[in-house]
């Protein structure tokens, strides 16, 4: 059995409870024991790192130092923002000795940072440490028939200098995981486009415009639903969808799943346990596609000329 340190972040204990819940279900199935960092604190996302650089590093650093007290060598984080802050702090601490010296003093009561623990997003942990093969093995009720648009948002693979995982522009790791679950990942150009989350409260119109474009392109791709691995992505695309539909006079009806919800379903957990009731856009229309056969476009038959040429060779 694998062991991994878990940093849930504030949203997992609030708005994205269903993410936290399904992560735990999935990890249990995959024989991974999760050990939550005792007495973890805020990662400093959004407010701290726009206001005060030292604080923006000091807050995540305390979590990194606490994580080193556990015996695991990897930490996994479901929230993309938390992941981003912790990973950025780790990279800067590891590679900028001047900064490391300065920030280390902030956590002096907790011990000092060694850089022993790898920081990975939930997506990265599933893709790299668990692997597609292990995931595929646990699938008992594949979600085949579903066409899905995987939306990574801005933080899971960006900036590349920090995340060092997958492509910053056209990542494929989530696509490959949902395919391992039996679903079809649709080619989707807006998988890393901005959803406007930072303006969620201050300028909602921007969010409607940007998230609207993502929904439009997801619909265009032929997807039945969107898959995310970030609480903020989920809330923006799900919660704002009715407002977007109202503003642009369109109908998208695209449920927004957490990746782990679909994994848990494919691993055989009943859908009643997924807390789908928390979703604004009902998920049933998308789930109804499970079991459908997706017709692949026919591959072009070899032209007459090519066949002739081959026979000539013989």
């Amino acid at each position: 059995m694998k062991k991994v340190t878990y940093f849930p972040g504030c949203s997992a204990h609030g708005t994205s409870e269903e993410f936290d819940l399904t992560v735990k279900m999935v990890m249990k199935t995959l024989d991974v024991e999760m050990e939550e960092i005792p007495d973890w604190n805020c990662c400093g996302a959004t407010s701290a790192h726009t206001m005060n650089e030292s604080l923006a590093y000091a807050l995540p650093l305390r979590n990194l130092v606490l994580a080193e007290k556990l015996s695991n060598d990897t930490m996994t984080i479901p929230c993309a923002s938390c992941y981003q802050r912790l990973k950025a702090t780790k990279v800067h601490m590891d590679e900028d000795p001047e900064l490391a010296k300065k920030i280390n003093t902030a956590v002096v009561g907790e011990g000092s940072y060694e850089g022993r623990v790898a920081v990975k997003s939930m997506l990265q942990y599933c893709y790299e440490d668990i692997g597609l093969e292990a995931i595929r093995e646990k699938v008992t009720s594949p979600v085949s028939g579903m066409k899905l648009a995987c939306y990574y948002g801005c933080l899971l693979t960006r900036p590349k200098a920090i995340t060092r995982f997958d492509s910053p522009e056209y990542p494929m790791s989530m696509d490959k995981i949902v395919e391992a679950l039996g679903a079809k990942a649709m080619p989707f150009d807006f998988k890393t486009e901005c959803c406007g989350a930072s303006f969620s409260i201050s300028d909602t119109d921007v969010v409607l415009q940007l998230s609207g474009k993502i929904l439009e392109m997801a619909k265009e791709s032929g997807a039945h639903a969107i898959v995310v691995a970030c609480p903020l992505c989920q809330s923006n695309l799900d919660m704002r969808q009715h407002d977007i539909e109202k503003k642009y006079k369109v109908k998208y009806d695209l449920p927004v799943f957490y990746l782990t919800q679909l994994m848990a379903m494919a691993f055989g957990f009943p859908k009643e346990k997924m807390m789908f009731g928390k979703h604004i856009i009902p998920v049933d229309s998308a789930l109804a596609h499970i079991g459908e056969v997706i017709e692949e476009p026919k591959k072009p038959v070899k032209g007459k000329k090519a066949v002739q040429a081959e026979s000539e060779v013989e």
């Binding site: 492509s167 910053p168 522009e169 056209y170 080619p187 150009d189």
Partner: peptide
């Protein structure tokens, strides 16, 4: 230039 979809 992945953002341009070169190759796709």
């Amino acid at each position: 230039y992945e953002e341009y979809g070169v190759g796709r």
